[in-house]
């Protein structure tokens, strides 16, 4: 890996340095825009005691749900974990800890973490279990709670196209948490559908500038759909 060629040729190289008890921030919303191959690599490495920060925990047998199979996750920081029987079972057995975090707060924690902002005030969660034990402050007559930002030892993200500098673009709603996750990892690994020549992506269309990306690997994606609903199934609009 020399200069600004961040492309690696194996998943082993992409995730090299991941160790037990590290924190990994993962992009994706449900199964949309998840770094499938990087997650599979973590499963293969069988790294234990991980703290995973991701909006969801995949489903049984796919996405981050894979890391539940050998109990690799110690703690999950998520906004919604309702798609996963194994998750619920490990949670109820006390084998897994979960920190349920409002979705916007989670996105902002990653964004702030990546931007060097250690904490921020938000009205979200005030007066609820989320606000318990947290510092509060009134601004202009409204109550806010102090939320601390998140950074990770690794961030794993998924994009549509990237160049070797790590400049990348996302496709449709596969963007979701990926841009924030990208900024918040000490080592950010990008799994991408397609590598393009430098200059092929217009500088003005880049979603995530390459400065945030340390390693790039080209993946093959299954892109599993969680809920396929067709216009004929339901009269929505």
């Amino acid at each position: 890996m020399a200069g600004f060629n961040k492309v690696v040729d194996s998943y082993e190289a992409a995730m090299a340095g991941l160790q037990d008890n590290m924190t990994v921030i993962a992009g994706g919303f449900g199964l949309c825009g998840i770094p499938e191959g990087l997650i599979a690599q973590i499963q293969k490495m069988n790294t234990k005691g991980l703290t995973i920060v991701s909006n969801n925990c995949g489903v049984d047998g796919f996405g981050l749900g894979l890391l539940l199979e050998e109990k690799q996750i110690k703690k999950m920081v998520s906004s919604y974990v309702g798609e996963n029987a194994l998750f619920e079972q490990q949670l109820l057995n006390g084998e897994l800890e979960v920190e349920l975090t409002p979705q916007g707060t989670l996105a902002e924690k990653m964004r702030a973490g990546g931007a060097g902002i250690p904490a921020f005030y938000t009205a979200t969660g005030f007066g609820t279990p989320v606000g318990e034990g947290k510092e509060t402050r009134k601004f202009n007559g409204r109550d806010y709670i102090l939320e601390e930002s998140i950074t990770g030892d690794f961030a794993i993200i998924k994009a549509y196209k990237a160049d070797r500098y790590g400049n990348c673009i996302y496709r449709y709603t596969a963007q979701n948490f990926n841009p924030m996750a990208a900024t918040a990892g000490k080592i950010t690994v990008l799994e991408v559908e397609e590598i393009v020549e430098p200059g092929e992506l217009s500088p003005s269309e880049i979603h995530t500038p390459g400065i945030y990306v340390d390693r790039i690997i080209v993946g093959n994606f299954e892109k599993r759909i969680e809920r396929k609903i067709l216009s004929s199934d339901n009269s929505n609009q």
């Binding site: 919303f29 449900g30 199964l31 949309c32 825009g33 909006n55 798609e83 979705q103 916007g104 989670l106 996105a107 902002e108 990653m110 964004r111 549509y160 996302y170 496709r171 449709y172 709603t173 596969a174 963007q175 979701n176 948490f177 990926n178 841009p179 924030m180 979603h207 892109k223 599993r224 759909i225 969680e226 809920r227 396929k228 609903i229 067709l230």
Partner: peptide, 25 residues
């Protein structure tokens, strides 16, 4: 149907004319 195009309920969806797409923050 496009796996990269879902709504907050994780259902497949389309974008209306005039739509925009952005990150979670």
């Amino acid at each position: 149907v496009d796996a990269d195009m879902i709504n907050a309920g994780k259902e497949t969806v389309t974008a209306a004319t005039g739509a925009s797409i952005f990150n979670s923050a």
